[in-house]
Design a protein around this nucleic acid. Structure first.
Lengths: 329, 329
DNA sequence: ATGAAAGCGCTAACAT
DNA sequence: ATGTTAGCGCTTTCAT
């Protein structure tokens, strides 16, 4: 790869002039400009981002942290982020942490080292202490999962209210024994969704059975299968299930299929997220839709504002209950 | 962020000595080393990757190009790549191109500019000419999709043989009217899978109906739904379907459900990839399993070898037919 | 064992 | 309009 020196030499000008041509500075005569451009083409020259970043302290690269790309929930958010970033001449790099703190650290360092201009974290397992430290001096935005009372701006939905609506929907259908397939309550969203679940039950004077609350370590399909297997072993079985993610719900639905249960007749189920799969299952899945694309767009805009040094406010977006076959008796 | 200068000053040594401590060079006295380490801690110093890369021409970052993260097929491959990379002290950055050449170009530039050490492309829409150019001077590996007779090393499976087996399986079950839901035949894998499909039909003296071959623009679920809708409008309807991706197959399956068709009784279906969702459908999906994790591991190893300057050979891995309910009468 | 200094590729302030 | 030069943070050769 040729460098700016060689271009300058070939064009018979100084490196400064080449730099000016590269950056569209005005004060270059048309003739010189043409000579430089020819040299650039001839040498197949492309400016080094490394040198440029080192000088400018700007990379126009954004990092997106997520625990795992296997959950389709993230897909649509990422599209939103990506579209917005590209439109503003930024690029994004997806960083899968696998909930591994060491890996996380490498990505944090990329920001500290000016290899990236900012970071959007969608990783609920993120080390909040480290992230807060990073956020003191660098642009950071939280998307979906956030820290209550924390300093980092976030975009999310009202999980408590959404869960409340989902469960209320089941109650209105006549269900009184409603199970919750939750994830680990170390996550804020899991605590919120449980609160919404309990609020709905309480409002209708239904008892809260702790054995009807299952905590899943992960959010894979197989975890949903496992969850429903457990719930169906109970003495007093639930007649409906609310799962805090579509992946869990789809696994649970499969588990019901396998047991020969008719959904929703024998058992109803509601998921959460509205991932594209949820409309492909048989029966299709009732779920809470999160405005994923919009969340991505907003997160990206927030981050870019933050990079510009502007103050940004956290936002809570609207969700929506999507009623499909899994609750349509 | 403190820099190496400040650390040197604080420790009362030169920057060279700090650098030596950082890089575990031997010739530093224990006492000096301790002083430097204290200064590093005190200042919370972390070396700048930018400065380091500029100097070393090494980033220990690998780029992974993919058209879209929404296809779960890529997920497992990425895990394989990631695990292997991490184990060798490399990190990976996921680059979604959305089949957009401009975006592609930015990532190519990252490699040219030493911001990344090499690239694994899983993008069938990649601009092969540009990629070949890049590969002349930089480590590049193709994964899954490749170029026949090209210069870039690849890891893939035998798509023709896999398709042949899938279709033969349907024929052995007694099907004589077998449709193919293919993707765009500008992709090599699509051409190969069609060839395998045709070879099986020919071997059993079954006619090739061009109207039973559907070409889908994309690989989303909805495209599968659309495909089967078309095939069911035909005068002479097929009794079985082979789809070149699980996402298409799952969409098609959904389309059959909607039409009230019993699978596999009324219509059998075979997919391709064995994504995790293919075991969650009702009925579960017969499919060709690609060794995705292994492909990722091998691709990463090939790339790292290539970075070391070693010669690497292309590899074709084994696939396997996974028989599930969608073809079990 | 340690330091001084060059240089990786680039941009921008200053000079002409 | 164009050139000269310092310096971004680091590593490494060459001195000492």
């Amino acid at each position: 790869m040729a460098n700016i020196q060689q271009v300058a030499q070939k064009a018979g000008v100084s490196v400064a002039t080449v730099s000016r041509v590269l950056n569209n500075a005005t004060s270059v005569s048309p003739a010189t400009k043409r000579r430089v451009e020819t040299a650039i083409k001839d040498l197949n020259y492309e400016p080094s981002m490394l040198g440029r970043n080192l000088r400018n302290s700007e990379s126009r690269l954004l990092l997106v942290l997520l625990p795992s790309i296997s959950n389709p929930f993230y897909t649509e958010i990422i599209n939103g982020i990506q579209n917005t970033a590209i439109a503003n001449n930024y690029n994004i790099l997806l960083c899968e942490t696998d909930s591994n703190p060491e890996r996380e650290n490498i990505y944090f360092n990329m920001v500290k080292n000016k290899l990236a201009d900012g970071i959007i974290s969608m990783d609920p397992t993120v080390n909040m202490q480290k992230l807060n430290e990073l956020a003191e001096n660098h642009p950071v935005i939280l998307c979906s999962e956030y820290e209550e009372g924390g300093c980092i701006p976030y975009v999310t939905i009202d999980s408590e209210q959404a869960a409340y609506q989902a469960v209320k929907h089941l109650i209105k259908l006549g269900h009184e024994k409603i199970a919750l397939i939750n994830s680990d309550e170390k996550f804020l969203y899991a605590r919120h969704r449980r609160e919404g679940y309990e609020r709905a039950l309480k409002e209708f004077h239904l008892p809260i059975h702790s054995e009807w609350i299952y905590h899943s370590k992960q959010l894979d399909f197989q975890d949903g299968v496992q969850a429903i297997r457990r719930l169906l072993q109970l003495e007093e079985k639930p007649t409906a299930v609310f799962a805090v993610s579509d992946t869990l719900a789809i696994g649970a639905l499969k588990g019901m299929n396998v047991k020969g249960l008719q959904v929703p007749h024998d058992m109803a189920i509601v998921g959460f997220d509205n991932i594209s799969f949820s409309n492909m299952t048989n029966p299709t899945l009732t779920t809470i839709e999160q405005p994923m694309h919009k969340m991505g767009v907003i997160a990206a805009n927030m981050l870019m504002s933050s990079i510009k040094g502007e103050q940004v406010e956290s936002i809570i977006l609207d969700h929506e209950l999507i009623i499909r076959e899994s609750t349509m008796g």
